[in-house]
């Protein structure tokens, strides 16, 4: 039986990297007593996989991991058993049994939503008056947004436009707040920093620093752009 677990990673947990988080969960699941399945072989390990890793410094309301379990456990009880073994900043939200044909979280992700703002309320961008108009021109009215993306193999040209499914802009205390829905997953993984960087370049702002952004992932989705489904909406409680 495969189960999908949705959890939050907030607060100080943003400083814990993906590999460290995976190791934390292996031990937490073990402590919780859930009947997780182990692989065969000399060094058996838990059958557990995570959807797209979250970078150090980012928070999230919608992280997912899939685990295989040996016997049916009531979803509410499982959530409690897991939460008894969490630390501040990690919170288990759902525990859903996946249908047999469900794709693994790791490969299923096609999009992710983010709320992005600036850590410094006096960031240069806060002094641009007609930002909403500029954003309209940069995104909504553009046919293409061509950027150079650095990859492991070198650089390649990329059109961001079809990979940005939502780019909304609002303000909180004068500081811009972006609401993004971006292509995610193994093929066209668009990080929010990349979009903001392109926007900054369009605005003609000086050098952009990834670390100036406060990024929170909100959720992850599967399916095609006309009908995204949250990874958390698949499967049922038991």
């Amino acid at each position: 039986m495969r189960v999908r677990i949705r959890f939050e990673k907030l607060g100080v947990m943003r400083y814990v990297g993906h590999l460290d988080l995976m190791r934390f969960f292996q031990k937490a699941v073990k402590r919780s007593g859930l009947p997780i399945k182990y692989s065969e072989g000399f060094n058996p390990h838990q059958i557990m996989s995570f959807a797209s890793p979250l970078g150090v410094g980012l928070t999230s309301e919608g992280e997912y991991m899939d685990i295989d379990i040996k016997e049916d456990v009531n979803s509410k009880e499982a959530i409690k058993a897991l939460n008894d073994n969490m630390v501040e900043g990690l919170d288990i939200k759902t525990f859903k049994y996946l249908p047999d044909n469900a794709e693994k979280a790791m490969t299923a992700v096609t999009a992710a939503s983010y709320i992005v703002t600036y850590k410094n309320p006096k960031d240069d961008i806060c002094y641009i008056d007609n930002l909403l108009d500029l954003k309209q021109k940069f995104f909504d009215e553009a046919y293409a947004i061509n950027i150079i993306k650095k990859t492991k193999k070198g650089e390649r040209e990329l059109d961001l436009k079809p990979l940005i499914y939502r780019f909304d802009l609002s303000f909180k205390d004068n500081v811009p707040v972006y609401d993004f829905l971006l292509s995610s997953g193994s093929s066209d993984n668009i990080k929010p920093e990349l979009v903001v960087k392109a926007f900054h370049e369009y605005l003609g702002l000086p050098e952009f620093d990834d670390l100036s952004l406060d990024i929170k992932r909100i959720d992850m989705f599967t399916g095609e752009s006309d009908a995204f489904i949250s990874l958390g909406d698949i499967g049922d409680d038991h």
Partner: peptide, 10 residues
């Protein structure tokens, strides 16, 4: 390794 300095360990 900033997680060295945040405490919060289980």
């Amino acid at each position: 390794k900033p997680a060295r300095y945040i405490g919060n360990e289980f």
